[in-house]
Design a protein around this nucleic acid. Structure first.
Lengths: 355, 355
DNA sequence: CTGAAAGCGCTTACAG
DNA sequence: CTGAAAGCGCTTACAG
């Protein structure tokens, strides 16, 4: 069934059918009604490709999930709680605003060009990039070519320097620096002085912010930052496992750890348990993100919550503004985090743990 | 950039450019090379809509997630571990085979027609429906209109009766009946006689299978099925919560429960804990699915694992076969489940719990 | 207010 | 082996 057939049955021209479908103002109610009835009766749906080819939007948002670091895992997304929450929030928010979502996973650096390809293929009206790494420059160029792009977790300051070039770009994220400061201050307020860091990938903005906040806060309190207590987990469970195991093997633990995300914190807790190191009695640990798991593990994880749903909702809304040109110019938004105190942190005890 | 420009630069016609792009056999290597170089140089990507309009496939699979039962929750997918795993597996499998994934959530019965709409709009080459309910008849009709559809978790026997009508349909699932029998047999083998059921939605195939397996196995062992121990959780946390709380209020508990999925089992465990009922000392509980959480909660959940990744992989593969007509006719596949013993089930103790 | 016609960017018989 | 041309199903100036 195509518009011409609808037109014939309704006794009008294709043009009029099209005007009805696209809500043109100057169609008399009677004509409109007649056409709509035929459309309804025959369950007619205009061919999206024909519409796009004729100049309409595809009403589709591309979601690009950067999963480069996890390259060794064949099923990258399959059990990643953090990405899951984002993905689902994007689908929720976009669907409820009449947009379709085309999901893509960026497995390797070479895959970055897929963003450009998919845009050039006219499959999407705009894109959301999640887990943006430093190498994302290519993406930013896509936005220069006219494709509205929203980056989640990216350094907005860097872009602001040349703001005028980035008309089609949006950056949304959370106040990770402030959140991480709160986490470290909390540990210090509990009496901890020997505090370790489980660091995320420094090629991500959030990784760098959380790292910097740790260093700054320790310095502010004149606390020593011991190199052996800085563990490079890179937001990856397997890396975290080796790093923590190496620390345990050395025999000397900090009394508390700030972990740059919950995934790593949970991995560390599992490993401590396995080595008969009690959390929080022997070592306190605080995470970041507040993923679903955080409240369900035992002991329940104390952490800093990132407001994922708010971030995604804003991202989708602003992206749609850029797509429909109802707003323009580079914009960035940053949401407050919130500390969620549960069971994995306690006051520094006097007794020192001997392994 | 369009194919005509590429043609001009390469000194050939549009037709030849198209033949190169579509790998026609009778293009001399030299011509092919020349065209490919220009394409490469200018980073040309053919417009997907124009291709589809001219008769090509869209290389896009629609993923439809039926989330009707959760209608009271505004962010339906956002924190649903079970759907997450499926979604991500679909994206993984499809992307790695060169297919794009268009995700849609079916919030209410009225949304079912979106499957048809999206297909008529020519947005997708085929669809996967997850969480199919009995009302899915409409979907099956879509497949009759020529859109390849794969149903996950649906009663294949019902379709087999009129198999020849369903050329474009595929059904994939797990052997839930056998898995549930194994779960109940396990509880019985531990000495339990008073066994309760936390039942899933009976409008789903898996819900019915798991229910039937419970009843059959109890009968087989001449064990009484007490009506007050059959709790209708409908696969929903809030419903489970009320049902379990009502049971606790009555003051008489079974010594073991078979829960039709992990989500409900975990909810029940939380509630038991809150009421100072110990798992597994006071009550044993076994789940179904083996979601990520199952191994992480404390006590870790004993459960029946559904091989999600295998199911999805097969679904995507067979759907692509139907799309590209390399295979045809109704087919169904069912995967074995596997019991995963952890910490929530123990031998029936002699001491009776008094609340 | 509305129809005829051009055009969107491809693919593919057709003819040579 | 390859080009000219028709056609895919829409939208939208254009003209009336």
């Amino acid at each position: 069934m195509k518009s011409e057939e609808i037109a014939k049955i309704a006794g009008v021209s294709r043009s009029t059918v099209s005007r009805v479908i696209n809500n043109y103002p100057n169609v008399p109610d009677e004509t409109k009604k007649k056409v709509l009835e035929v459309i309804e009766k025959y369950n007619y749906q205009p061919n999206t490709c024909a519409r796009v080819l004729a100049g309409k939007k595809s009403d589709t948002i591309g979601l690009f999930i950067v999963s480069i670091a996890d390259a060794e895992n064949p099923n990258r997304l399959y059990k990643n709680d953090y990405f899951n929450q984002f993905t689902n929030a994007v689908v929720d928010c976009a669907n409820s605003r009449g947009y379709y979502v085309l999901i893509n996973i960026i497995y390797c650096e070479n895959d970055y060009r897929r963003v450009n390809e998919i845009f050039l293929q006219k499959r999407i009206d705009g894109g959301i990039v999640l887990g943006t790494e430093k190498e994302a420059a290519a993406l930013i160029n896509v936005s220069k070519k006219g494709c509205p792009i929203a980056l989640i977790d990216y350094d907005a300051e860097e872009i602001k320097k040349n703001e005028s070039e980035y008309e089609n770009l949006i950056v949304v994220g959370s106040k990770d620096y402030e959140g991480a400061v709160e986490a470290v201050e909390y540990l210090i307020s509990l009496g901890h002085k020997e505090i370790g860091l489980l660091s995320g990938r420094l090629s991500t903005f959030s990784g760098r912010q959380r790292y910097k906040a740790f260093v700054d806060t320790m310095k502010k309190h004149n606390l020593e930052i011991r190199e052996e207590f800085i563990l490079q987990g890179d937001f990856i469970k397997s890396k975290t496992n080796s790093a923590v195991q190496a620390l345990i093997n050395k025999g000397k633990l900090p009394s508390a750890i700030f972990s740059s995300n919950d995934d790593m914190a949970i991995e560390a807790i599992e490993l401590f348990k396995y080595n008969n190191i009690r959390v929080p009695e022997d070592i306190s640990i605080i995470g970041f993100d507040n993923i679903t798991l955080a409240s369900l593990i035992k002991p329940a994880l104390t952490t800093i919550e990132t407001p994922i749903y708010s971030i995604v909702e804003k991202t989708v809304e602003e992206l749609i503004h850029n797509i429909s040109k109802t707003r323009k110019g580079f914009r960035s938004y940053s949401y407050n985090t919130k500390m969620v105190i549960r069971e994995t942190c306690t006051k520094k005890l006097n007794s020192l743990l001997t392994l």
